[in-house]
Design a protein around this nucleic acid. Sequence first.
DNA 1: CATGAATGAGAGTTCATTCAT
DNA 2: AATGAATGAACTCTCATTCAT
Lengths: 244, 244, 244, 244
Amino acid sequence: MASKAVPAETQRAKLERKEGVILAAARAIFVDHGFDGARMQEIARRAGIGEGTIYSYYESKAELMLAVLEQFWDGLTREAEDVMVSVQATDFFGRLEALAAYHLAAVIRNSDFINLTFALRRNNSEVSVSRDHLRQYVAVFDELFLRGQDRGELRPDAILWQARDIFYGSLEYSARSIEMTIDAERIPREQGPVVDQMVALFRSHYGTGDSAVATGTAGLAGVETRLDQLTAQIETLNERLSGA
Amino acid sequence: MASKAVPAETQRAKLERKEGVILAAARAIFVDHGFDGARMQEIARRAGIGEGTIYSYYESKAELMLAVLEQFWDGLTREAEDVMVSVQATDFFGRLEALAAYHLAAVIRNSDFINLTFALRRNNSEVSVSRDHLRQYVAVFDELFLRGQDRGELRPDAILWQARDIFYGSLEYSARSIEMTIDAERIPREQGPVVDQMVALFRSHYGTGDSAVATGTAGLAGVETRLDQLTAQIETLNERLSGA
Amino acid sequence: MASKAVPAETQRAKLERKEGVILAAARAIFVDHGFDGARMQEIARRAGIGEGTIYSYYESKAELMLAVLEQFWDGLTREAEDVMVSVQATDFFGRLEALAAYHLAAVIRNSDFINLTFALRRNNSEVSVSRDHLRQYVAVFDELFLRGQDRGELRPDAILWQARDIFYGSLEYSARSIEMTIDAERIPREQGPVVDQMVALFRSHYGTGDSAVATGTAGLAGVETRLDQLTAQIETLNERLSGA
Amino acid sequence: MASKAVPAETQRAKLERKEGVILAAARAIFVDHGFDGARMQEIARRAGIGEGTIYSYYESKAELMLAVLEQFWDGLTREAEDVMVSVQATDFFGRLEALAAYHLAAVIRNSDFINLTFALRRNNSEVSVSRDHLRQYVAVFDELFLRGQDRGELRPDAILWQARDIFYGSLEYSARSIEMTIDAERIPREQGPVVDQMVALFRSHYGTGDSAVATGTAGLAGVETRLDQLTAQIETLNERLSGA
DNA sequence: CATGAATGAGAGTTCATTCAT
DNA sequence: AATGAATGAACTCTCATTCAT
């Protein structure tokens, strides 16, 4: 009879569903109270299960946290990728704007969780996001950036990691500022201007626009910067060669 | 005579010294284990005193944490202000470079503590840096920025908080990246380029274009291109070496 | 079937039994060491459970103490009421004697606990017997007294609270004296004479004199009482003489 | 010079004065917070001295408590004796009324401390009033009572300890009731009626008034009297034996 | 002799984890 | 497999007592 096969399928589905419920509950509680402040009992209650049941899905509280973090970062990456797929614009700056808007919103929405992630790295040796998750997330930007260079929309000499630092750094700091309204002017900020500003900055700084004036101004400083970088890289190279 | 005054002075000095010892020990332990993970006993042991003694200086663990945070942020602000006082340069961009260099170094040096600060804000309601401390710290940049506008070195239409977000955001993200070496290239980064890049970005984006000297230098763009090519080649070389 | 109901019943019964065990252990330790002197660990050990378990039954040490007190006073009241129900005598003085005998025995048996009760009222603001418990206990006497007046056995002008003070006061003081053997004569006291004396006092002071039968009865009771005392004293005397 | 003798005298006086200050402070704090709840620091602060100083007067907290108790009970006894000396009345019942009034007032005024005394007896083995202090206090009543018998104002067959239990018991219970206003009638009680009631009760129950004649029951009373005399004789005998 | 800063044992309480049901 | 009552180690904080000044 199918009385065995079907329930088996159902069983598996049920387990996975329950796993999802646990993760959702755990995330909510972790966000509200932090890792140490979260109590397994409350997580269980929110998930509508017994405390012991959690332990048949996850070895320990730390393991549970890890699973939550993994799910979170993977979801973030998937969403960012989805944005890149579904965005109408085909030009770099249009796509950058979409990514920036998504990232800023995501950071604001999940600010507590993101803070949590970084806090954990320091404090709790056993619980720390594998950096691969973060790397996969920022890879969405990297890919966009490289394609921008390939398409000739970005200056070929623009350096990836510098742009990445500015992109994520500015947006995250903005998010934090928005959240705190820390600015002295006490003007409630909105997300729109931040994104616009970001894109404008990229366009003027990294774009291959005909705006020769801007390029020219950047000129001397740019040379200096690049010479510094070259020097550093050569040094590194030498170290490696001598170390090997 | 002074036989009473001097010991009194010594007494006070001794207490203050002990207070400093406690704060230093507390900070070390808090950084290592986070707020919840830190144990008062270990703090006491590190400070070379009894557990109870801490409680005659600070009401509770939370109060101690607060004192540590206060000391940290006030110190950071004071140092930043000192940098602004002692820096040779009088022009905006020169001074900005000094501030950026200081900030980046400070963030790298104290990254764990800064993460801790932000983690606390979320999780532990009673322990949170009064945002005034943060505001005072970033005020150093604000003042510099406004002076730059007054002196005509910065575009008058530049918006303070946007520039601030980019400045602190990029530097902090860079610091984090440097610390994690999260970049795919796995090239150990240095602080110099990051600062240069920051200043260059400000110059090109917020600077007043009328500075005729920078403009009009024709051959420089060619030089830049050549340098970029060189950089790219070395980068490629590097990747190959690390991949092997 | 009942395969579920029965264990459920057993479950509940088990919990209630454990609750009883905890209360008994707590009471023993509280009596031995007082509220502040009692240690939760020792209570747990005596109850044969873990420390933490107590806290799933009672919020705190104070709550536990409160529960113990409540149980004690309620039990005392119930027993007193039972005595009133089961006593053979129907006349006031017969019933009073039964109540006095019960109360004196109870006070002697639980003297430590009763002292504890009153000590708590002063010292520990959060732990104090709701005076309602006490009031319910003395209400047994009040009811008896009022019925005695209704039946014409007690003078209608007798005042309730005065009689109550004498009744409980004398018995409690006697109990304390018996317990301490504080009397100079060092004659071990017995409970019988105290009760008899109490009843005799009530009869002579509050009784209605016109019931000739009652008076006569009182006379005989007095003779009996004094004979009892004589017997006891002679016994004591003999013991001493033979012991010396 | 007297510079040595006089200060020496002053020294001693100063010490005794300080001792008194400490005792007063200790008593106040003990009464407010109980033995365990009292903190040495607070006692020291109230006495206007350093914590360590207490320990040069008393070995420990328990010793201090003991000294406080001793002082209290001795003072109570002295006051009671003073009342007996200064009271105008020469007859037993007049003097009894004075003693009762004093005792009731004293018990009400010091109810917390008296409760404390008895609580300590149970809980803290090292801190307990030597029962001799109590005995000395009640001896004031005993003496009055015996004198009343000698003067023929009290029935010779009245038994000391029974009367004593009623006297102190009723008054203490009344005091507690007054303090708690525990009575259902919620009528604020006053001390006067309680004392009057006490004296009236003694007069009717123990007095040698013509009321004995009025009793009417001829034969039985005679038997009782005879038995009482016998009892008294045996008691006397007993006392002599235990005293030897 | 007086002080009060320092001590540290020991208190109540919490909560991740276990395991009998 | 699921439960949640039970556990007890480990936490923060208190406070009687000591002792260098």
